[in-house]
């Protein structure tokens, strides 16, 4: 029996949030940011290629990715929200719940952890983009509070992650520090524009010159950058309980990175 349930209404409303990001963040509208650091998980994380898991889920729905960028992933999120709404209306709970589960996975495992830090950095480093980046960042956090993919657990030691890992992955630095700092795993997103600002110079590519970390001044600037990131993420964690575990882990990572830079 077709039903017009509260769940269907909520999913329809959620679809609007997703589609707003999609429409705003089509790649062609933000070429400057793409040239700096593309909004994709593989570029922002670097150490992890998210090919298989989301691909498999998308195949079930017949969804074909284009760029796997922010707009692309949010387009899938919108489609899943609409699929859930329609499934509730057709009285197909097995479809609706799967759409919900896959959307929660999309947000919590493939999107929030890199897109929020990226939007935060993009808005700060590229002021003309702030008007687009900040609403998108807040929308993603709101979606996190709705779908609650990463709430803080009671003690934080419940064994959700394997020893030596947190919600981002392995805690141990996976490579040389200059490379690690280019990953969100370090505790924040460092854009090319940030590096150019720090060094007061134009860079050919988004990379940390070898001399920087050997130089006390630039090293201190880098350390402070991570030190200030730590409380910022903790603040976001306090405001957004649905994704708080991510931000607490990112804060801890920023703190560890700051220590690592300081100990050079």
């Amino acid at each position: 029996m077709p039903t017009r349930s509260e769940a269907a209404i909520a999913a329809s409303a959620e679809a609007v949030l997703w589609v707003e990001i999609t429409q705003e963040w089509e790649p062609a509208r933000h070429r400057e940011l793409w040239d700096d650091l593309p909004p994709t998980e593989s570029a922002v994380v670097r150490y992890f290629q998210p090919d298989a898991d989301l691909e498999r889920r998308a195949r079930y729905w017949g969804y074909e990715f284009v760029e796997r960028d922010l707009a692309d992933l949010c387009r899938l999120g919108a489609a899943l929200a609409r699929a859930e709404a329609e499934a509730w209306e057709r009285d197909e709970p097995h479809i609706a719940t799967r759409a919900y589960a896959d959307r929660r996975f999309l947000l919590g495992d493939r999107l929030l952890h890199w897109a929020v830090p990226w939007l935060e950095a993009a808005g700060r480093c590229h002021p003309p983009e702030r008007g687009a980046a900040e609403p998108a960042r807040l929308t993603l956090l709101e979606l996190g509070d709705r779908l609650r993919p990463a709430p803080v657990l009671t003690r934080g030691t419940e064994g959700l992650f394997a020893p030596g890992e947190d919600s981002y992955g392995p805690i141990e630095t996976p490579g040389p520090l200059p490379d690690y700092l280019l990953s969100v795993w370090s505790g924040r997103v460092v854009m090319k524009a940030t590096l150019e600002s720090l060094g007061a110079t134009r860079l050919v590519e988004r990379a940390i010159p070898e001399a920087w970390l050997a130089n006390r001044d630039t090293r201190d600037l880098m350390r402070v950058m991570y030190e200030v990131a730590e409380p910022r993420w903790l603040g976001i964690a306090a405001e957004h309980p649905g994704s708080a575990q991510l931000w607490r882990d990112l804060a801890a990572r920023a703190g560890r990175t700051a220590v690592a830079i300081g100990s050079l």
Partner: peptide, 14 residues
Amino acid sequence: DLDAIPRLLPGSEL
């Protein structure tokens, strides 16, 4: 907004 969303085909592939 909803018109811009692609329509999914659940069960397209295992």
